[in-house]
Design a protein around this nucleic acid. Structure first.
Length: 652
RNA sequence: GCCCACAUAGCUCAGUCGGUAGAGCACUUCCUUGGUAAGGAAGAGGUAAUCGGUUCGAUUCCGAUUGUGGGCUCCA
């Protein structure tokens, strides 16, 4: 040992660790601590995630990965995918293996795709689970080997694994590839993997689905099995109960239970029917939205649902967006299209007058209802529909105003989203893609404006290089809901395409006509989807200012009916949405119904309340607030059901 | 759109190995007026998603269509 030349490894805390050259990472872990060595499942060597069996030959940065780290968890899940594939091959030798990575979509942690003609049934999944448990119990070691591509081809050809051969085709001849083997099962895989199958602490197969080979709808449909794996049984249980909670607050279920909206096969898929209570909430959202837009200096506009084909020709939508547009309808010989976007109309309003640099910025906002063709298979409740209302706006501004306008948009966005109860966000800046329109210099300028606006607002953001739309860079904001799931709502996009196509201009200080910057932005995204997200976020219990019914008056007996009507009228006069439930049912029954309807307040009035001229409110949570005078109760409910305060708009 | 699954009363579901269907809740009427999460009785309600086919006979088997769910792809 002493003869081995020493190397120095640098640990995450910055401490140096001298080790003999050629030590395995497991030995490194042991040198750090016995407990760490026991927990270790893989390691990070100069940023590269590798097996514990890998030998370190030179000085390097080293971190030992345990199941507690996201990377460690990914290794467990990837290994679980291999174990699943081996179980499938044992049970169904006719199934061909394809790929099986670790993923993290909030539900699943890994999958493996098989070419298996019969497809997998529930019973198959149960059998596969049992076989996987056996393989894990046997604690079979994962062994890595490196072979030439040609040798790998020969091996997979012998096994008839045609998909693996296809993957190998893409690798240059003569290159080394890595194989991972546990038991009989060998897979082409970069790795890394756990030391052995016994190191998978807890897993569950979640579902079976179809998936195209290489995600290409022209290629073969494969049978995919999804699963998830965790660092402990407890983590798995927690995950499953989170999924259970998500099912419980599924907006489609709540929409039915609370009588908010529905879909009808007679109307068509993806077309929402808003019931009175749902429409009430929607209008409250929209009213608040409008008020904030006035506060942030927008002017509201209103535009038609259809427009002539020429308009969409000019905008370019018939070129790049046609697949999402409905077939044209002919009106007196002219083709018209249902609008998939509002921009061309807002531009026409802009162009209805000659604009001066003094007029800028011009901010047009509209709750514009658009129709987009969506393949039937992707429709999903309110989250993915064919007709929806965008909270759309277009800002036309001078180059020197862009930065300021973006900051304003961001302030407006966060004000609005916070008002609805969201306070955690992921922000992304998407930059110029390979195919783009406009001048690179303008792109630079716009990207810089987006970046500096976010920095000025003190926002942390990630950059998605090359993920911008072809017409301009954009900022996307995802909100986190109460279950920790994230939803893309807000998008702020600079557009270099439409101003050019429509010859949008203003007259500058030098009396020359120049093209303004144009910004598209949707803050809530789509009202339909936002409503769905909001519904799930609050589990159907809207904040009192949005509740379709804010209180229900419950007379104890028929004798208080007249008084109850007076109470209802008094609350209504104060602007509260109050209903009266004087059906001949017992009080307990009516309380139960109001509770299930998630009404924030119940106003119980019996003989005592009549005599003393008050009410006894009960909060939606079940708390009896005790007797109070009518004025006191109206004051309290008015405060609790107050709309969020208006924003303080800073001029930046 | 593609793969798989599903579609029975307003809702949630049961049942029918091919012989035209049932429960609970909701609804209507009556009784009950009860102080903080389900009082009682009676009644009404179904062209079994739609359209074809096989069969003496189809809600049940087969096909198509529409819709829904889980995915793929795409996106607000």
């Amino acid at each position: 040992m002493a003869a081995d030349p020493a190397i120095t490894l640098r640990l995450p805390d910055g401490k140096p660790l001298p080790m003999p050259k050629g030590s395995t990472l497991l030995e490194v872990a042991k040198a750090i601590g016995a407990r760490l060595a026991k927990d270790a499942i893989a390691a990070k060597l100069d940023g590269r995630i590798v097996d514990l069996s890998e030998r370190v030959q030179s000085d390097a940065q080293v971190a030992i990965l345990t199941p507690q780290s996201p990377e460690g968890l990914a290794v467990i899940r990837h290994s679980a995918a291999h174990v699943m594939a081996s179980a499938v091959k044992q049970l169904f030798p006719g199934a061909l293996v394809t790929i099986g990575p670790a993923v993290d979509d909030g539900v699943n942690g890994f999958y493996y795709d098989f070419d298996f003609d019969r497809g997998f049934t529930e019973e198959d999944v149960a059998k596969i689970t049992a076989r996987m448990e056996e393989i894990i119990r046997q604690d079979v070691p994962f062994a890595r080997s490196e072979v030439s591509r040609d040798e790998a081809q020969a091996r997979f050809a012998a096994q008839g694994e045609s998909y693996k051969l296809e993957l190998l085709e893409a690798i240059p001849a003569g290159e080394q590839v890595s194989l991972y083997q546990h038991g009989e099962f060998v897979d082409l895989c970069r790795g890394p993997h756990l030391p052995s199958t016994g190191r998978i602490p807890a897993f569950k197969l979640m579902s079976v689905a179809g998936a195209y080979w290489r995600g290409d709808s022209k290629r073969k449909m494969l049978a995919r099995i999804y699963g998830n794996a965790f660092a402990s049984k407890k983590d798995l249980e927690a995950h499953l109960s989170l999924l259970e909670e998500a099912r419980r607050r599924d907006h489609r279920l709540l929409g039915k239970q609370l009588d908010l909206f529905s879909f009808s096969p007679s109307v068509g898929g993806g077309l929402v029917l808003w019931h009175p209570k749902g429409a009430q909430v929607r209008y409250l959202i929209e009213d608040f939205w409008r008020q904030t837009h006035f506060d942030y200096g927008y002017e509201l506009v209103n535009t038609p649902h259809i427009g002539r084909a020429e308009l969409w020709q000019t905008s370019g939508h018939l070129g790049f967006y046609k697949d999402n547009m409905y077939a044209p309808m002919e009106i007196e010989g002219n083709p018209f299209y249902l609008k998939p976007m509002n921009c061309p109309f807002h531009i026409e309003i802009y162009k209805s007058a000659l604009r001066s640099y003094r007029d800028m910025p011009i901010r047009f906002a509209e709750l514009g209802t658009v129709y987009r063709y969506e393949a039937s298979g992707v429709l999903h409740g309110l989250m993915r529909v064919r007709g929806f209302t965008q909270d759309d706006a277009h800002i036309f501004c001078r180059p020197d105003q862009l930065d300021r306008e973006i900051r304003r948009c961001l302030q407006h966005t966060f004000f609005l989203l916070r008002a609805f109860g969201f306070d955690k966000f992921d922000i992304y800046l998407s930059t110029r893609p390979e195919k783009f329109v406009g001048e690179p210099a303008d792109w630079e300028r716009a990207q810089e404006a987006l970046r500096s606006a976010m920095q000025a607002e003190g926002l942390e953001f990630k950059i998605d290089p090359g993920e911008g739309v072809f017409y301009g860079p954009k900022i996307d904001i995802k909100i986190h809901d109460s279950l920790g799931r994230s939803w893309q709502c807000t998008t702020v996009q600079v557009d270099f395409n439409l101003p050019r196509r429509f010859e949008v201009e203003y007259v500058d200080q030098n009396n020359t006509r120049v093209q303004p910057f144009m910004v598209h932005r949707a803050l809530l995204g789509s009202i339909e989807r936002f409503f769905g997200v909001l519904l799930e976020h609050h589990a159907g219990r809207f904040p009192a200012w949005l509740a379709p019914v804010q209180a229900v008056v419950l007379p104890v007996t028929r004798d208080q009916q007249a008084y109850a009507q007076k109470v209802q009228a008094a609350f209504r006069a104060a602007g509260l949405r109050v209903q009266l439930d004087d059906r001949s049912e017992k009080l307990g029954f009516r309380i139960r119904e109001a509770q299930l309807a998630k009404v924030p307040f119940m106003l119980v009035v019996g003989q005592r309340e009549v005599e003393q001229g008050g009410v006894s409110p009960r909060a939606g949570g079940g708390e009896d607030l005790g007797f109070m005078s009518l004025d006191e109760a109206i004051g309290r409910l008015s405060r609790e059901a107050a709309r969020p305060a208006r924003p303080v708009v800073e001029e930046v």
